Amino acid sequence: MNNFDWTQLVNPEFYILMDVGGVKIGLLVILFIIFAETGLFAGFFLPGDSLLFLAGIYSELLMRQVSMGSDFADVVLLSSLVSVAGVLGNMVGYWFGVKGGTYLYNKEDTFWFKEKYLLQSRDFFDKYGGKAIIFARFLPIFRTFAPIVAGIAAMDKKKFMFFNVVSSILWSFSMILAGHYLSSLFLDKFGIDLKKHIEYIVIIIVLITTIPVLFKLLKKRVHL
Rank of each mutant, 00 (worst) to 15 (best):
G43I: 01
F44N: 03
F45H: 14
L46S: 15
L51S: 10
L54S: 13
G56N: 04
Y58F: 15
S59N: 08
E60K: 10
M63L: 06
M63W: 12
Q65E: 13
V66N: 13
M68G: 13
D71E: 03
A73C: 12
A73M: 06
A73L: 07
A73V: 09
L78S: 10
V84F: 12
A85K: 00
A85N: 00
G86D: 02
G89T: 04
V92C: 10
G93W: 01
W95M: 05
V98A: 10
V98P: 03
V98H: 02
G100Q: 07
Y103H: 14
K107S: 11
E108W: 12
D109N: 15
W112I: 14
K114A: 07
E115C: 09
L118Y: 08
S121D: 09
R122G: 09
R122C: 10
R122E: 14
F125H: 07
F125A: 00
D126C: 08
D126F: 12
K127S: 05
K127Q: 05
G129L: 02
G130N: 01
K131E: 08
I133K: 05
F135D: 00
R137M: 08
R137F: 06
F142W: 02
T144N: 06
F145M: 07
F145C: 05
A146Y: 00
P147S: 03
P147G: 04
V149S: 00
V149E: 05
A153W: 02
A154Y: 14
